[in-house]
């Protein structure tokens, strides 16, 4: 299905994938009693966080992320990707995202999915802020020649 005016958008695939993401977070919440916040789980896997899932569980979650991607890649459709053209963008982006998620206690999954659905004021404000900041960054990047 196409969205009028947005030829590249994938509303149906997006929504279906979103439902799966929601199920993943629901399973973690109702099964293990924890938030499926990926930045927190990643930090835990690297033993950079004092609280959270056990370290083997954090690693298994990360392995699952790769496994889920592989299953879709092989059985549904090859995953199309276009990465940033410059290595420095990957390095700078990674550094800033890594530091920022720890400082702000969460990312798109923890604040954006779990916290927003819980109507947590912290998460609502964090999500609005990170989208506003991301939007401003892309707009500025386009102007100064870092767009891609």
């Amino acid at each position: 299905m196409m969205l009028p005016g947005f030829p590249y958008a994938m509303p149906v695939e997006g929504f279906v994938g979103g439902l799966l993401i929601g199920l993943a977070a629901a399973l973690m919440l109702l099964g293990s009693g924890r938030i499926a916040g990926i930045s927190g789980i990643a930090a835990r896997a690297m033993m950079l966080s004092k609280s959270g899932a056990t370290i083997p569980a954090a690693w298994l979650f990360v392995v699952g992320l790769l496994l889920g991607a592989l299953v879709v890649h092989v059985t549904v459709a090859p995953i199309a990707t276009e990465f940033p053209p410059s290595t420095w963008m990957l390095i700078a982006g990674g550094l800033i995202v890594g530091f920022g998620t720890r400082l702000g206690s969460g990312c798109t999954s923890g604040h954006g999915v779990c916290g927003m659905a819980r109507l947590s004021p912290r998460s609502l404000i964090a999500t609005a802020t990170l989208i506003a900041s991301g939007t401003a960054t892309v707009a500025i990047a386009n102007v100064i020649g870092w767009g891609w």
């Binding site: 929504f15 799966l20 993401i21 993943a24 298994l60 979650f61 699952g64 879709v72």
Partner: peptide, 18 residues
């Protein structure tokens, strides 16, 4: 649960184009 949740999450991200 961790492995199942991660796999669902990864599959969802992949299907959704994210």
């Amino acid at each position: 649960i961790a492995l199942a949740s991660g796999t669902l999450f990864g599959g969802g991200l992949a299907i959704s184009g994210m």
